[in-house]
Design a protein around this nucleic acid. Structure first.
Lengths: 340, 340
DNA sequence: GTCGGCGATGGTCGGGCGCTTCACGGCCGT
DNA sequence: ACGGCCGTGAAGCGCCCGACCATCGCCGAC
């Protein structure tokens, strides 16, 4: 079984290759009758354009790239990535555009991947995750003129359009909700403090606490591993003036935190309230169910894809957009603080 | 910034384009000295082969395909996919081969994707997941002569090589372990009974129970959703001769089952033992921790990638291989059955 | 009334994207 | 003179598109 080419179609339809090309691309220059004949032959032969030939001709690669920078064994644990991908795909498949995935070790490798994709003409644009302060990826992508959409921001993305999750607003909602429940000593188990969204949240947390006259909150770092999160929680809860509410930067860390709290004999939510950024089934699987800040990740993926297509077609200079705000979903893990 | 081509290198190095090509591809026909000069210029210019031009020339597309057939919102919940991908990538990136991802609705769409990938020359081969009985994907891939490796099997994969997880052996281990703990009434919360591995497990379960003189086990179906799994568990536990041990087909369904059991006031493991196929952090997050059948999913991904490369290079007719066997990891959710 | 010119229509031709590779051709040593 | 060794030229992968060309109908000039 051989792949048909336009030459095959041209032969069968009794016209030149150019005529076939015009007909298949809805270009003027062929009569309606010829066009129909060509289309009929093409579909009969099951013709599809050879993506490499198109790309070589100077057209699109017909794919976008996504580099994932996470330790391999942790990628699976968080639903975020797959949800984002499924959102991306919903837009991509509508335009029959492929998705190129690459798992990379670190930022350096990620940049190398972008250069490679660019030099090899493999992708028409990329989606950038987890923006950091002074992120070197931004200027590389600008230099390469490789269309890109950053998820994160809005500051620090240079000329690249971005989708910024409203992390400060989300954190503000949480703090006000907890304050309304009577909580005063808050703690924050955060991720990598180089991440833009972590900074935004931390800043907002301290800001709101100050405004409302709450004591200075504690922010501790714990990345994705169970151990770090468990240990961070253990330390927070063992401290003399232990917090009455803890906000976690992911669902996974929050669930781990909950286990630790229960292990230490604390009653949730009577003695300790817990909130997770990122909602997922995980939050509903545990007991009590976790109060969470939910956002529509597939929706954000779709939005990113649409923006990327716009950037690919229209060139740089597109506008950044806010993502849908977080929705606070109160569940069993938060409640009025009861002094004993 | 323009991408350099071999013509640019040829100009700078003062040789012909063919000489450059020979030098860059370790082909004979250029002197060592020229080769070094060319390589130096190439790396100075940051040259990389234009993947489309190579592919057009008749070479490889330099990418493999993975079609994921799952409802979008469920894809994220299970770590399986991402772990598999990270395993694939570990081999792919070593050969600087890309991964094309496509989320599809159903088998029909998946087949259409294979045809498209084939016709568009987009991938050199594909990985096929979740083999079913009389799987129509197999014959399509055979007809297209598109190299493929099936994860699942070994039966029913036609001429395609496969990696077969030893599901029957895994199930046998579990049953014997449970029997040794004194359990006699077993139940099995399984997934889609069209899936090959589900059939293998179910068959093995019934077989072993028969051999050991245990009563006929119950198999009920529950796919990936929380509700189905919860309901299946509830029904099993409400039946007059309720099982003393339940085996779940995924970590996620098992965790849901555990929640239901605790909700119904059963003590785990004293009154009910639970086992999950597929280990993950989820199993360790809950209390008691779940006994699980673990297997190395990234390892399997890597194995699949290696087999696919072999199939791409050597043509069809490669051998199927067993995957690493499941390892039974006894944890807190299983124990001796205590009659009350 | 006839005829050249002209635009529109519907098509063909061929080059070239970047790369590989086959066929050949100098040049040297034997 | 002849066989390596190095190196060049050119073709061609499949597709797109700018350049070109034939035909025809229409119009105005004579």
């Amino acid at each position: 079984m051989k792949r048909p080419t336009i030459a095959d179609i041209a032969g069968r339809a009794g016209v030149s290759r150019s005529a076939v090309s015009f007909a298949l691309n809805d270009q003027p220059g062929v009569s309606e009758e010829t066009r129909q004949r060509v289309l009929a032959v093409a579909s009969e032969l099951g013709w599809r354009p050879h993506s490499a030939a198109r790309a070589l001709r100077g057209g699109r690669a017909g794919a976008i790239g996504l580099a994932l920078q996470r330790p391999a064994r942790l990628l699976g644990a968080e639903p975020f990535t797959m949800e984002l991908i499924s959102g991306l795909e919903s837009e991509l498949s509508a335009r029959s555009c492929g998705l190129n995935l690459q798992v990379v070790e670190d930022t350096e490798a990620e940049i190398a991947t972008y250069r490679r994709w660019w030099a090899e003409h493999r992708v028409d644009g990329v989606i950038v995750l987890n923006l950091r302060d002074d992120d070197p990826r931004v200027s590389v992508l600008e230099d390469l003129h490789l269309p890109a959409v950053v998820i994160g921001g809005p500051a620090g993305t240079g000329t690249l359009p971005s989708i910024w999750s409203q992390d400060a607003a989300g954190m503000t909602d949480v703090v006000e909700y907890l304050a309304a429940l009577g909580h005063r000593r808050l703690a924050h188990v955060a991720g990598d403090p180089n991440m833009r969204h972590i900074v935004d949240r931390t800043t907002a947390l301290h800001e709101v606490c100050r405004l409302r006259g709450l004591p200075e909150p504690v922010t501790v770092r714990a990345d994705f591993s169970d151990e770090e999160s468990a240990q961070a929680t253990r330390r927070l809860l063992a401290s003399p003036d232990r917090p009455t509410a803890i906000i976690y930067h992911t669902d996974l860390t929050a669930v781990t935190g909950l286990e630790v709290a229960l292990e230490m004999g604390l009653s949730v939510p009577d003695e300790l309230s817990l909130v997770a950024f990122n909602d997922s089934r995980l939050c509903r699987l545990v007991n009590p169910k976790l109060t969470a800040l939910a956002h529509d990740i597939p929706g954000r993926g779709a939005q990113a894809a649409r923006m990327l297509f716009a950037a690919i077609e229209a060139g740089p200079g597109a506008d950044s957009q806010p993502a849908e705000p977080y929705r606070l979903l109160p569940r069993g893990s938060t409640g009025v603080y009861r002094t004993r």
